[in-house]
């Protein structure tokens, strides 16, 4: 379970808060979608939960653990799929996964078996010995995902895991995530694909201007909003049509 209490982040030299007084509880085995326009604070929240960014104030715990007290234990039970590919282009898919899996303390036969299992499930078993630098965007996304789940995390954070991939790759990734969730993994993911979130997530939260505006099951949010047929209608109604360009 993830418990977030009054979590805020204000970046150095920034005029406004990237995230302000966010309270949220995510239950075990949920697939929670963090939705919001560009610059809303989604990545900031994921970065704080995965120890990449230090909160300005507030606190959170994941399965009862905090970074302050149980840093390595906590890192061992979470997995992070970053927005960037975060892979070594001159190493093969297998070498990348072998190294990144080793960093979680997995080795030997266990590591080898897990790598091959995931590569096979995600349709990459024929490319294990090929350099990642030559992979398509969709293939890289899938290797990126495998690198974050080799240690079988209890909680998985995904920052736009299907951005820039073809429909086939997206489908394989979503199916794999559903499989992981079925096996007990809690999933928190950010996306701009509202249709995808609507079908995948058990609950979603819409963030705008650093604040959590609403949260709930997709169907409930749609039914609450007048004239809304899908999550995209809800999103536009709540966040408005104004462009969110920022630099």
């Amino acid at each position: 379970m993830i418990l977030i209490n009054q979590l805020s982040k204000k970046y150095k030299d920034a005029d406004t808060y990237a995230l302000q007084n966010l309270d949220l509880a995510i239950e075990q085995q949920e697939i929670f979608g963090l939705l919001g326009p560009n610059g809303a604070g989604k990545t900031t929240l994921i970065s704080m939960l995965s120890s990449l960014v230090k909160p300005t104030s507030g606190s959170f715990s994941i399965n009862g653990l905090t970074y302050k007290e149980n840093k390595n234990k906590l890192k061992q039970i979470i997995g992070i799929v970053p927005q960037e590919y975060a892979l070594y282009p001159t190493l093969t898919a297998y070498e990348n996964l072998s190294y990144l899996g080793s960093m979680y303390g997995i080795n030997g036969k266990t590591l080898k078996t897990r790598i091959h299992q995931h590569l096979e499930t995600l349709g990459l078993d024929n490319f294990a010995s090929k350099k990642v630098g030559f992979f398509s965007g969709g293939m890289k996304r899938r290797v990126n995902l495998i690198a974050s789940i080799l240690h079988e995390p209890k909680v998985l954070f995904l920052d736009e895991p299907t951005v820039g991939v073809d429909v086939q790759s997206k489908n394989v990734i979503i199916e794999h995530l559903k499989g992981l969730n079925a096996n007990g993994t809690t999933i928190i993911y950010t996306s701009h694909h509202l249709n995808e979130a609507e079908h995948l997530c058990t609950r979603v939260g819409i963030i705008d201007h650093g604040k959590l505006i609403c949260k709930g099951k997709p169907a409930e949010l749609i039914s609450k909003q007048e004239d809304a047929n899908n999550l995209e209608d809800v999103f536009i109604t709540i966040t408005g049509k104004a462009l969110r360009d920022y630099a």
Partner: peptide, 8 residues
């Protein structure tokens, strides 16, 4: 960034 999230 990935390594920073790993227990290493």
């Amino acid at each position: 960034v990935r390594l920073r999230t790993n227990p290493v």
